[in-house]
Amino acid sequence: MSDNNGTAAKVALTPATHTTPPAKFSHGVKKGNILQVAGQVGFRPAKEGEPPTPVGPTLREQTLQTFANVKAILEEGGATWDDVMMLRVYLTDVDHFAEMNEIYNQYFEEQQLTAPPAARTTVYVGLPKGLLIEIDALAVLG
């Protein structure tokens, strides 16, 4: 797909598991072989007419759901975890770092990556009450 200038068009990505964003942004965008996933949190898959809610109160529950939400956008854009170049993890509590690393390592071991793992940055932030983690991703396809 290209725009009027013959360059790749920028396409918004919203998988069926996600509702329309609450503000003027896209859950993911793809232009050419670049795919950027917006920060995702551990919200349950979307149900029309219901507000988004966290999947559960634990870091494990929220991290695994956050990975599922990122993966849904990657797949919507034709990417896999092997295409991801950079992951940014945002935690609300420095004390969650070791547990998040354990969950992260186990998750990616189960994904059976065929390419080297993505680069990663982890920072500590404030998120809405009850949310413990947020993750965004940058993928390059082809």
Rank of each mutant, 00 (worst) to 15 (best):
L91T: 12
V125H: 04
E110A: 06
K30D: 00
P54C: 07
R120W: 13
A16G: 15
L132M: 11
G32C: 08
Q111T: 10
A38C: 10
P51K: 14
G42I: 02
N4L: 13
H96P: 00
P15N: 07
L91S: 09
T17N: 07
H96G: 02
F43R: 13
I34L: 15
A115T: 12
R120F: 10
I73N: 02
K71M: 10
M1I: 06
V94S: 11
Y90V: 10
Y107G: 04
V41F: 03
F43I: 08
T80E: 03
R120E: 06
R88G: 03
L87W: 01
D95V: 10
K71L: 13
L132N: 13
T92Q: 05
Q106V: 13
P52N: 09
L13W: 01
Q111F: 02
A12Y: 00
T66Q: 12
T14G: 05
P21K: 02
N105Y: 05
G78C: 03
P128R: 13
R120M: 12
L132H: 06
D136R: 10
E110W: 03
H18I: 01
A9G: 00
L131T: 07
G32V: 01
T114S: 11
P116W: 07
R120H: 10
K24Y: 05
V11R: 08
P128K: 08
Q62D: 11
R60S: 12
E110F: 01
L131Y: 08
M100R: 07
T7V: 09
R120Y: 14
F108I: 14
T14K: 15
S26K: 11
L131K: 08
Q62H: 05
A38L: 08
F97Y: 15
G78I: 00
Y104S: 06
V55C: 07
L113F: 03
A12I: 00
Q106D: 14
T122C: 12
A8R: 09
L131G: 12
A139H: 02
A23K: 06
R44P: 04
F25P: 15
G142V: 05
T20H: 03
L35I: 09
L113W: 03
E134P: 02
T14N: 12
A9Q: 08
L13T: 09
P117V: 11
V94I: 10
Y104A: 11
V29C: 05
E134F: 00
L113N: 15
K31I: 00
P15W: 02
A139W: 00
P52A: 08
I73V: 15
A139N: 04
L59Y: 12
A23H: 14
K71S: 13
T114Y: 01
A38K: 11
L113E: 02
K31V: 00
L91P: 10
D136S: 11
G56L: 04
L13P: 01
I103D: 15
V89G: 04
K24H: 08
R60I: 06
T80P: 04
N33Q: 14
M100I: 01
M100G: 01
P52L: 04
D93L: 01
E110Q: 13
T114I: 11
A139E: 00
G142Y: 10
A98P: 13
P21W: 05
V89Y: 07
A115Y: 02
V11Y: 06
G78L: 02
G42K: 08
T63V: 13
Q62L: 04
T20I: 08
K71R: 14
I133A: 04
T7F: 12
F97D: 01
R120D: 09
A68D: 14
E61T: 04
E99H: 08
M86E: 12
A119P: 03
L64D: 05
P45T: 09
A23C: 15
Y124N: 02
